[in-house]
Design a protein around this nucleic acid. Sequence first.
RNA 1: GGCCCCGUCGUCUAGCGGCCUAGGACGCUGCCCUCUCAAGGCAGUAACGCCAGUUCAAAUCUGGUCGGGGCUACCA
Length: 480
Amino acid sequence: MRARFAPSPTGYLHVGSARTALFNWLAVRNNGGELVLRSDDTDQARGSDEYYDDVIEGLRWLGIDWDEGIETGGPHGSYRQSDRLERYQQVAVELRAGRRAYLCFCTSEELDERRRQAQAEGRPPGYDGRCRTLDPDESVSRQQAGEAAALRLAIPRPGETVFEDIVRGEVRFGHDNVEDFVLLRSTGSPTYHLASTVDDVDYEITHVVRGEDLLSSTPKHILITRAMGAEPPAYAHLSLLLGPDGKKLSKRHGDTALHAYRDGGILPEAFVNYVALLGWNFGDDETVFTRREMVERFALDDVQKNPAIFDNEKLTWMNGLYIRELDPGAFESHTRPLVEADLGRALTDEERETYREVAPLVQERVKVLTDAPDQVRFLFAEEVDYDAGSWDKVMTKPESPRAIDAALVRLERVGEWSSGPIEKELRAMLEDLELNARKGLQPVRVAITGSSISPPLFESLAALGRERSLDRLRGARSRL
RNA sequence: GGCCCCGUCGUCUAGCGGCCUAGGACGCUGCCCUCUCAAGGCAGUAACGCCAGUUCAAAUCUGGUCGGGGCUACCA
């Protein structure tokens, strides 16, 4: 098996494309085949280097590796279509010489006009084949004389293209609905259909796994392949990823660039696990599984036909699971840069030690890595930022001043400043005041963290340190 | 409009003629645990689009219908 992932660098790596790449990768790794990465940047669609790099970076982040192609090399040059223009032109010349394709002198304006007319009269809007009957030799002379001409494939008529799609089963298209489409523009540059198909043939691709949006172009690709005298590969068309409104996932649904998920604190393993579930399932009612398990069980035949709505909430839930499974050191090193970025400065050695201690408590509480700074900001910022809602809800309670006063007294006499002794004193305080833990501790929490939501209180106090804790309690008391 | 694809809880899905009183997961609700928030545990909520037909028996097969989506460029 030889599959390929062939993004066109006209935008950032899209989550839908990432899923296509993943399914290609899973299929190949499952059966010991090879994955080729190429760039479908036909002359016209040449994208920016930024997009090109984004694709490669995204694949690497996901842990999707390839055996041949871009950056990895192989027997076919750069694996960028923009470097293979002569090859497409060569194929085009052969197709024309073999009468499988013909020159077309219709201008864009003429085509538009005729298309509009056809639609108005209820006829199919495709190219009407006007230039197909021109004398080929005469056409060549006209072109050589300088007349602009595109090259079109002569679709066999009547005819029908039938193929067995791995996920959809038999699909058939009557040629009445396949127009004599353009292979080579009048500028000499190849269209996507030509370039992509030539590459699939040249690179000996056996399985084309791609999005369903290309399903109706498949007869075109099969026809080109046959016209080249080659055997078409097997096709597997993956259903599309939809936004919450059931429409094709696009920018208006929010983030569609894969890197937005990385930047949003999603772990690649979680992303891969979640996305694998869109159109495929592990069996055994399992939804969480390792990459290895995934590779072992994956089969294109098991891929579902219906489109799937991309559910950020489930992805986030799953990400929380993966975060909690991270070893503490990994969590710490993943999130420390985020904390530092939030603070706008690097942590001191002492602070790093503090963070190392509290990070495991944070790890249990976040669903995305980027939530970490919120949980620990109170430890490293000079001033507490009192959350107005928390303050109003907690500090206005009648018992709050008493609780803070008492806490101050008890905490001042804590010997060793660590969570155990701190807890002991505060529990004693609760007993003195005859307050339950909820009522007695919340004011303390708000006083030192600024919020009614925080990591566990005793550990937070311990991490904050004696002096700063006491200062904050005094500061809060004076605001009451 | 034409062509093509798709149709099980709100969402992702299991199901491949009787194991279905339709299973799992997310979400949501409630309870337990609990210093807050999470996490965890338990329980609950909720679906075969519709109509015919085939069959002793249909979510599963067939036809139609409705609904959704994709494509319809000298874009990819």
